[in-house]
Design a protein around this nucleic acid. Sequence first.
DNA 1: TTGAAAGCGCTAACAC
DNA 2: GTGTTAGCGCTTTCAA
Lengths: 352, 352
Amino acid sequence: MSNSGNRQPTIIDIAKAAGVSKSTVARALSGSPHIGEASRERVLTAVRALGYERNHLAHSLRAGRTGMIGLVIPDIANPFWAEVARGAQDAAAANGSSLLIFSSDWDAAREASHLRALRQARVDGAIVNPVADNVDGLGRFGLPVVLIGSSAERFPELSSVGSDIAQGVALGLDHLASLGHFRPALLLGSPNRLARVRFLRVVHDHCLAHDIDPATLMIEEGEYTVESGKAATLRLLEREGAAVRCIFAANDLMALGALLAVREAGLTCPGEVSILGFDGIPAGAFSDPGLTTIEKPARSIGLEGIKLLAEAIDGNLDHRRVLLECTLTMRGSLARTEKDNRSARLVAGGRN
Amino acid sequence: MSNSGNRQPTIIDIAKAAGVSKSTVARALSGSPHIGEASRERVLTAVRALGYERNHLAHSLRAGRTGMIGLVIPDIANPFWAEVARGAQDAAAANGSSLLIFSSDWDAAREASHLRALRQARVDGAIVNPVADNVDGLGRFGLPVVLIGSSAERFPELSSVGSDIAQGVALGLDHLASLGHFRPALLLGSPNRLARVRFLRVVHDHCLAHDIDPATLMIEEGEYTVESGKAATLRLLEREGAAVRCIFAANDLMALGALLAVREAGLTCPGEVSILGFDGIPAGAFSDPGLTTIEKPARSIGLEGIKLLAEAIDGNLDHRRVLLECTLTMRGSLARTEKDNRSARLVAGGRN
DNA sequence: TTGAAAGCGCTAACAC
DNA sequence: GTGTTAGCGCTTTCAA
């Protein structure tokens, strides 16, 4: 069993079959003009006959680029991130490159290990939504990177794409205010996430603009999951009781958890407690009531990420920050409140 | 700018820095015993100093295996498949390999192109849920493959993993029967999917066992999406009217769509129409009412897939078929019916 | 137009 | 214990 065992044929096999040298085969394959019509024909015939397919490894090793791109996101099972992955996938395919998707599970160590794997795989670049405390590791990544999300501030030299959280949060807050909710309780992610800081900052500004003392805001925190959102809401309800008339969650999964908690506490939504989410995952359409939410353009984020990364890989040094607009998706989880819960207005405070 | 430009260091750089040959470096790196303590130290020091990381491409080219595995699923944005991917991802990581995830979008051409890409990337093997009409392409894949789902029947020589659809459907049907629903309307996927055939077969058997004429079953079909499920249900309601007291959907997304349709038609669920899903996606917990469904062990499917593939890659010739049990997740979308809708009992029929 | 040869980074014989 | 060498499959000079 000499050459034509079962392994995939190489250009050498083709060369033999076509009676030419391997350089000629390479030329035919790459569509080089420096080759005779006759040889080209014979090569192509042999290629079809043997079912040759170029070995990407060897090609990449020689070419110095793999056509592979890494995508590191917190959780592929979270519909929002799955949608981002979908967008990136599509864009990458259109681009001729393939995507290596990794879930970091919000864990810095895992993220670091994934980044290392990507570097070793010699991906051409990576798109990552970094876990906060790992930001240093990212700085030394050594390959073109595009950031997704809020961490861009810490890396002014990297391109980044994200939804405009400031605009989104303001959009939500304004809408809540228009319904009479001036002091929504906040369901936030863990403190070491930049997204949380961002979120809070906008809320603060908004409060000040509306003469509310930010210090009086009710805040609970947890992870970005349904269970965690539910638990956090239960704690909130326990602690604040009837003062909770509106909840603004930093992510839809938590909002859905809040919904469960409210129901479990024997309260009604939106009757007694209004809930506003953030993300725009499809599941929000099925809840009872439907989840009103600030929708991020998930798929576009993935798509833009690939675009920016392609630029960076092509050596385009000037980084860019793409901010995609959030939209308000109204369903049934918000109700107008009669009580003006601005009770904690900034009157004795420093301002005014 | 000679050697230490900006490129990643190679073993040659390390060799130079440590004052040894590259084989010695390789030995130190691979933990070979045939090396002096002194050299090992110096190599390791140099490795740390230069931040060396092994080039996977070169390694793979030499080793003949890449440690990469392909996963081809219909849609990464479908929560069920995202969960499968998650399970596979975790198992692969534990395994030291990385996963290349592709969405085929239920499209044979796309699937074929992904399989080609995987072959060219020299993945060690692939796990795929094949689009029906592409089954031939799969036969010629030429690499170890593990099938997910029902197509296993067409490839008795391949390992496969899937949920036990027969058991799951029977479970659902029995439960429906226990509530008085003997002739659920069926919401099925497109005819060229093997899963549909399977599903129907079990329903038929069940009908016969309960003296129901399968030909009297109400059937609608569509794609495995919410929109499609909704449209199909609307058609069903339009056509059959009040005869529709129970719907059994072949997938949760369609079931959720059915729920929307029922609501839109001014009907109540489960009061007037009961709905049973199939998959067990998280979103089913938030609908109104909660979706009762047959839950497939999505994550385990991914996990087992990797296990089987690892076996196949290791040259374990005897294929295996792993069937994971489905469970019934009861929420609120099913109600007991008073009317015995076995009206179409097999009395005049051929049997008996 | 074509072939020979070098080399991408790594590992595994094979000498010494 | 260590260095030298060949070669994985490919592309790309450089000669002819």
